[in-house]
């Protein structure tokens, strides 16, 4: 997959959290890449490991309780080997992150100006005047009205949508090639969600940066992403260009997810599909065999691989294991 345009290449990444003396992988054997000028969406239920993956890429896991194995290559540089000091040079400059809760992710006792300016202080040699101009430019870029006034304000004085624009401005400050957006619209009203997504798309077109968009909202994926990776229980189960994923999903989990959102194919009054059970907790996760097996008990045992691996079934379309060949919804016949 690695081409000249590749920004981030994750190879066989495991991220384990410590409980007592044992490490349990929340992300297991994940390989994925992000190219320039691309929006890669990572979707999955809560607890599937998508935020853990994102946090690992920007290096914000607490090293005392986390074990990271595998490679995260950024322009050929393995980030997992970096010390804090070097990582800090990258963070905010090469890779930046947009968080879910715009109120919590801004410091309540610092002005908006100070919080955006901080990014510039540690990565540029701009003087006071130049930093002021840059902050003003950023606030204009993210569509904040009356930026001179907003600069002097504190987060609690802004609306949710405005706060998220500020968070985006912080992430954009140094024009980073890689932006990780962790559920950027989850905490916002639906109308504001659409505005923020449009903003992110505009910015991506302007800056040609690569964006990793973490979300559980398939609507957001359909609207914004170029490519999608579906995660389940710490693993990527399917990866495909966005139109392929929505028109020709293969993995049972992807199909179940898509089947559980309302669309024009559903008749009025028809009940939506519900995926049985829940994602098992980290300590109880089956480490062998197909992890989705327990949630589709009507599929016969022979359908599942001993050790399902992610493999390409068409150019750019990868699926884990072969159970998809035998999958059908409960009560339906095999196609």
């Amino acid at each position: 997959m690695a081409t000249d345009n590749t920004l981030i290449e994750v190879n066989n990444l495991n991220v384990g959290f410590r409980f007592g003396d044992e490490y349990y992988n929340a992300v297991e054997d994940v390989s994925i890449s992000l190219a320039k000028n691309e929006i890669l969406a990572i979707v999955g239920e809560s607890g599937c490991g998508k935020s853990t993956l994102a946090t690992a890429i920007i290096g914000l896991h607490d090293p005392h309780n986390t074990r990271i194995e595998g490679e995260i290559l950024y322009n050929g540089l393995d980030l997992t080997k970096l010390n804090e000091k070097l990582y800090n040079r990258l963070r905010g400059n090469d890779i930046s992150m947009i968080f879910q809760d715009p109120l919590g992710s801004l410091n309540p006792v610092m002005t908006i100006y100070k919080q955006i300016e901080e990014s510039l202080i540690y990565h540029t040699k701009l003087n006071d005047k130049e930093r002021y101009d840059r902050v003003l430019e950023l606030l204009n870029q993210v569509g904040i009205p009356k930026p001179e006034r907003v600069m002097k304000q504190y987060p609690h004085e802004l609306s949710g949508g405005m706060r998220q624009r500020v968070v985006i401005a912080i992430a954009l400050a140094n024009k980073p090639p890689v932006i990780i957006a962790d559920e950027p619209t989850t905490a916002l009203d639906v109308t504001i969600q659409a505005q923020i997504l449009d903003l992110m798309k505009d910015i991506q077109e302007e800056t040609e940066s690569g964006i990793i968009l973490i979300t559980h909202d398939l609507g957001v994926v359909a609207e914004t992403a170029d490519r999608v990776a579906v995660m389940y229980a710490g693993q990527i189960v399917e990866e495909a260009p966005v139109d392929v994923l929505f028109t020709d999903p293969k993995h049972p989990y992807t199909r179940s997810l898509l089947n559980s959102i309302p669309n024009e194919l559903h008749e009025d009054g028809e009940e939506l599909h519900v995926i049985q059970g829940t994602v098992p907790s980290l300590q109880n996760l089956p480490r062998k065999g197909d992890r989705f097996r327990d949630r589709i008990p009507w599929i016969p045992d022979e359908a599942f691989d001993e050790d399902p691996i992610l493999h390409e079934i068409a150019p750019g379309h990868k699926v884990r294991g072969n159970s998809w060949k035998y999958f059908h919804f409960e009560g339906e016949e095999m196609e």
């Binding site: 914000l60 963070r91 901080e118 912080i170 400050a173």
Partner: peptide, 8 residues
């Protein structure tokens, strides 16, 4: 976490 992600 935001501050860390800025490289502070």
């Amino acid at each position: 976490r935001t501050a860390r992600s800025k490289g502070v």
